[in-house]
Amino acid sequence: MIEIRGLTKRFGRTLAVDDLSFDVNPGRVTGFLGPNGSGKSTSMRCMLALDRADAGTALFDGKPYTSIRRPLFQVGALLDAGYVHPGRTARNHLRAVAASNGIGTSRVDEVLALVGLTEVARRRVGGYSLGMRQRLGLASVLLGDPHTVILDEPANGLDPEGIRWIRDVLVHLAAQGKTVLVSSHLLSEMAQMADDLVVIGMGRLITTASVEDFVSQHARQWVRVRSPQIDLLAQQLRSDGATVTSLDATGIEVVGVPAATIGDLAARHGATLHELSPLQGSLEDAFLEATAATQQYRGVPSEPSPPPPLPAGSALPPPQGEPR
């Protein structure tokens, strides 16, 4: 278990991490989310005592990182796949890291096989792709089979197969009861692998919640309705205070009324329903909504180009969402 309490880090006048407190529980994958510059990487470095925190504590199973002897057996961390000497081979890099904690060369060969780098283990890391370096970084994390795993953007540079592989590895580690904290900008990936989320912005905690709770709290929810009597239903729903948007001649989207209520309403008025779909925004929608006030670096929206003319009789594309 990781317990963060009041973690604070300044770089000159910039408050990078501001009184951050949260827990990361064992047996679950915890996603660490925040916009660029929100302090995720700094927080992770402070947890590992690589950056000296100005205040606060980070405890791993009740101990500060600096008091852990042979930490590779307790905490495996991958903060940046680039932290490798390019002139050293992957195997020698791992041998050096392993030796510092009394781990033998046989384990080095095991983890190289686990991450699929055995064939290139004797090649200099300078010739590796980013994806191969990520795999090497993960091999380093796995050396001591630690209880706690901390990964900063582990999917960076990985191909789709690699992304799926790392997701499976992390889910598998959590299923073994390990504590997994992982930051990623790939929110679709996070949605698939994380159980809990810690969301920060401008160094401050925004929220901690399970993925489901976070999405339901922050993402838009609506109901798509299709019926031959759609005008009647739309009129009734508007009079009940719902926000109704017309999709096409037979479809509407309704915000503010649950699907069951719409179903009851349709039954009362004898309307036939062809579709009644409760929809919800994605984790990405929820994240953008939750961190809107803390986005430091934002692009200027480009001028929208005029849409191509629609073929006669075609409907506008529906807004993106996931059926619940």
Binding site: A49, L50, P71, L72, D80, V84, V97, S100
Partner: peptide, 10 residues
């Protein structure tokens, strides 16, 4: 090369 972070983490 940034390996000092790997070293200090270990």
């Amino acid at each position: 090369h940034g390996t000092i972070r790997t070293t200090f983490a270990a």
